[in-house]
């Protein structure tokens, strides 16, 4: 109940801040680009775009959102309300995942890609979005300015993005699947190019596990660095 209220509040806030509007514009931009790509390049570019923009948007926005709530002092009020830390965090994850999913589906749908596994696309964009939003909350805990936050995300981004090149394939590159971003990208590619059902299941379960672990860890970091100021 509290969680639902929190999610509704977050969504309303995001609409007011123009998230949805901006993503309409961005989606339109991608669609223009996509419409010019030949089919064989679209097959690579589309999953990459869906992965690199809508699915990762949480990391981009969450820093500002929390810094603002901190600045306005609202965070303090939430801390002394019955709203649990995990509810606060999960609410952020869910509300941003909704934007992710809507943008991912819109970009994919209007690119008229022939073979999309919509369920898999839904699952993979939710799981990816969750990981990056949680990562953002964790990075954010020690930051006071947006610039600090953006800088701190750079090493994490490198850590998450560089291994993705492993998908190009080289000896032992399969080992990189252990890195959540690689697993997520694999699942995302799978929803466009097809993937064995057991591989997809394994990846999804793995990513879900990572999400839960990260959630637990993020709650701890959040409580240590933001809730308690000792």
């Amino acid at each position: 109940m509290r969680l639902l209220h929190a999610v509704m509040a977050d969504i309303r806030f995001q609409i007011k801040q123009g998230f949805y509007l901006v993503y309409v514009i961005i989606t339109a931009m991608y669609l223009i680009i996509m419409s010019f790509l030949p089919d064989d390049i679209l097959a690579v570019a589309l999953p990459l775009v869906v992965f690199s923009d809508p699915s990762v948007l949480g990391l981009f926005f969450i820093g500002g959102i929390i810094l603002m709530e901190k600045g306005q002092g609202v965070l303090m009020v939430l801390v002394v309300s019955p709203l649990r830390s995990w509810e606060y965090i999960l609410s952020k994850v869910i509300s941003l995942a909704i934007v992710s999913v809507l943008a991912a589906i819109a970009i994919t749908y209007f690119s008229y890609y022939p073979t999309v596994n919509w369920w898999l696309l839904l699952v993979s964009s939710i799981l990816t979005s969750g990981i990056f939003t949680l990562l953002g909350i964790m990075i954010n805990a020690g930051c006071n300015t947006v610039n600090q936050y953006m800088l701190k995300t750079i090493p994490y981004m490198l850590l998450f993005i560089l291994p993705c090149f492993a998908l190009l394939g080289f000896p032992y590159s399969e080992l990189f699947t252990i890195i959540p971003s690689v697993a997520a990208l694999k699942l995302m590619l799978g929803s466009f190019h097809g993937i064995l059902w057991y591989e997809a299941t394994a990846l999804a379960v793995y990513l879900l596990g990572i999400n839960l672990l990260l959630l637990k860890f993020t709650v701890r970091v959040f409580e240590n660095k933001i809730v308690y100021q000792d």
Partner: peptide, 27 residues
């Protein structure tokens, strides 16, 4: 007016770069 709007703006401004490639599309 605030940081979050700023981020939203920054995100939207990224689309400006598209115009650098405009003539490729020949629209």
């Amino acid at each position: 007016e605030d940081k979050v709007k700023g981020l939203t703006f920054a995100k939207g401004l990224n689309t400006l770069v598209l115009f650098a490639f405009a003539d490729l599309f020949a629209l």
